[in-house]
Computed example of a mutant assay.
Amino acid sequence: MSATLVRPAPERVAVRAREIVRIIEADPEFARLRTACAKYDEDWQSFTGYALVDGFDVETDTVPLFPEALRAMAIKSAVYEMTDGDEQAAEIPVSVPVDEMIHALAAQFTVLSRVQERTGIKFVHATDREQIGGWDHGDYTHQVYRAAWGPLSERFWIGKEETMKRKAVVVAKYEPLGIFQGGRKFAPGFATRG
């Protein structure tokens, strides 16, 4: 991240982010977008995202997690608008589980594209600009979120230090099974031997 990165005041972004969420929720395909994210369950392979949420269950956690992702995307979109399309500034840090749901949202490419066309709102998500695990309590994202919607869900918004602890525990549990580097590498024969 650039040392000269400048973002608009959290209170200003919060006003626009709330408006963006209202606009998206009013879109005729919003229900389909929300439902499609929840049905993405059979394709989700999250070794170090959802696994950080204590007792995560795709069937029960997607409903409350979806609004968190939508709000984070609204903040990104608001920052993007207010910085004349500065993608670096717009790629705010978010909690790892919330980022996983953002990926599910972004995977609904066709519907999301139509929503963007109808609303004129640009969704911003760039993996090469992300600060994976960089979100923390009290940071810029948290300030905007709190100003826009009040307290966040502590179940899904896991701070930086706790994220590092949980990730280390999860990775250590996977290694004896032959899953290495948080799911980026598997032991030979993992998928072919019983």
Rank of each mutant, 00 (worst) to 15 (best):
I20Y: 14
V21W: 07
V21T: 12
A26G: 11
A26R: 08
D27L: 04
P28C: 02
P28I: 10
F30E: 00
A36W: 01
C37H: 00
A38T: 04
D41H: 09
D41M: 07
W44T: 11
Q45E: 14
Q45T: 13
F47W: 14
T48Y: 02
A51P: 01
L52N: 03
F56W: 13
F56M: 03
V58N: 10
D61M: 07
T62C: 12
T62G: 07
P64M: 08
F66Y: 11
P67R: 04
P67E: 04
P67K: 07
L70Q: 05
R71C: 09
R71G: 13
A72Q: 09
I75K: 03
K76D: 11
A78Q: 03
V79T: 12
M82H: 05
T83M: 09
G85P: 06
G85T: 08
D86M: 05
D86W: 02
E91Y: 00
E91I: 03
E91L: 11
I92N: 13
P93H: 04
V94P: 02
P97C: 09
E100R: 10
H103E: 06
H103P: 07
A104Q: 11
L105R: 00
Q108K: 05
F109E: 13
F109L: 08
T110F: 07
T110Y: 01
V111I: 12
V115W: 01
Q116Y: 01
Q116E: 15
Q116R: 11
Q116V: 01
G120E: 08
V124D: 07
A126P: 00
A126D: 12
D128S: 15
I132F: 10
G133Y: 09
G134F: 04
H137M: 04
T141M: 13
T141D: 11
T141N: 08
H142R: 00
Q143E: 14
Y145Q: 09
R146A: 11
A147P: 05
P151A: 11
